[in-house]
Design a protein around this nucleic acid. Sequence first.
RNA 1: GUCCCUAUCGUCUAGCGGUUAGGACAUCGCCCUUUCACGGCGGUAACCGGGGUUCGAGUCCCCGUAGGGACGCCA
Length: 469
Amino acid sequence: MKVRTRFAPSPTGYLHIGGARTALFSWLYARKMGGEFVLRIEDTDRERSTQASVDAILEGMAWMGLDHDEGPIYQTDRFERYKEVIQQLMDSGHAYYCYCSKEELDELRAAQMQRKEKPRYDGRWRDSDATPPEGVEPVIRFKNPLDGAVEFDDLVRGKITVRNAELDDLIIARSDGTPTYNMTVVVDDIDMEISHVIRGDDHINNTPRQINIMRALGYDTPQFAHVPMILGPDGQRLSKRHGAVSVMQYRDEGYTAEALMNYLVRLGWSHGDQEIFSRDEMVELFSLEGINRAPSAINQDKLFWINQHYIKSLPPAEVVAQLEWHVANQQLDTRSGPELADVVSAQCERFKTLHDLVAGSRYFYEDFTDYDEKSVKKQFKSATADYLRAARSGLEALTDWSDEAIHGVIEQTCEQLEVKLGKLGPALRIATTGGSSSPSLEITLRLLGQERTLSRIERAIEFIAARQV
RNA sequence: GUCCCUAUCGUCUAGCGGUUAGGACAUCGCCCUUUCACGGCGGUAACCGGGGUUCGAGUCCCCGUAGGGACGCCA
């Protein structure tokens, strides 16, 4: 049997991190098994579904590289099919009309809660001969088996058993005739020949109901794999107050797609002690058995670490490709400075995010307005101007603007002045970058270019002079 | 409340009856160092509690406890 998995989000918002990981697992399994990955949009709730959300989900998946083989299939395009199956259930005696009003059901629930019972429909219209009330559009309910139990082998959780007595007759069609979630999922998973339903474990309780409907329809059930949810850093349910929850927000904050994928795949799944997985490795090594049963909390620091790992180890050209968005977003004009790839090579060990890498490389392209106050206080002494002047003349004389040549000038200047590099180095760095954090001096100056280097040293000399007054 | 599920360092996890309970992030030292970083070496740190089963339980079973999820004419 061909492996076919699916990701079935409802378009009521952006693609959040939990959904993204579920999609990733589902995608990985399909790819690993040489199967197919279907994207289905569960938009039967017309009130809350929006095209903007569909676009956001598509954008998020594209950014992560989770390509689908079929879809997006919209459930709203399949209403005729659902109606057909619902009718089939009616005809075979597996479903019936229920004329209870919402108010009536609310009362029933309240009463049951008060008696400390599990709130559930009592089946009052199940085999009723009563005359339907006037003017009430009925809903259609599924006739859930009364006895026995539903048992299924979850590929992640193991055997799960629920007694049918715990289940009630769920609504499969609303009074306006539209199908409900549990109905559409069943029909779709059957029609689309889904072999493995990989989804969040908040659906675990729906599974026995869906299995019952599938059986009533005479179909075999797919395999199920319920993956645990992702928690916030505090172990609480993930929400906006935890910071980034949408996948695109991670992009915006400067994470590489590779890093987010790697982080996500290790959250709730493992392959021994391995931490770093390329996309190909993930596909090769992924297994449903490796998925954990307990929910896991996201951890900023580890994401930072992985992100930096990829910024350091991805080919600079690849980093540049992802950097472009941030360059544009931060309105940095890179035409008047060094190649971005060179900046990446020089800076990659210094930043945890692409955002910070761009923000921290500004001085290569634009003159900074202020010097870092602390650095100035510590390093710009009265004698500093003389040091800078000496370095300046040495650098000015250079015809070969290479790391080696620049390094040589700096060393010679120190010897000539009879000072340690600790005196000249920091001053030079502040003069040329405005602060005390940059790649090694020779690389920094080389990237800056001779002209820019000299003018900035000049400016620093003037700045120091002005301070002495 | 009822049902379902879960439980190893702060966090992500390895472990699949016999281990000095391993790795990673974070943290703390030391080293490297022209800044910031990177890197290297080392340290602190965990089997939720109680009963069983067994020669032997982190590993299997039961009961607690704690957390999560579900209980909609939402998905």
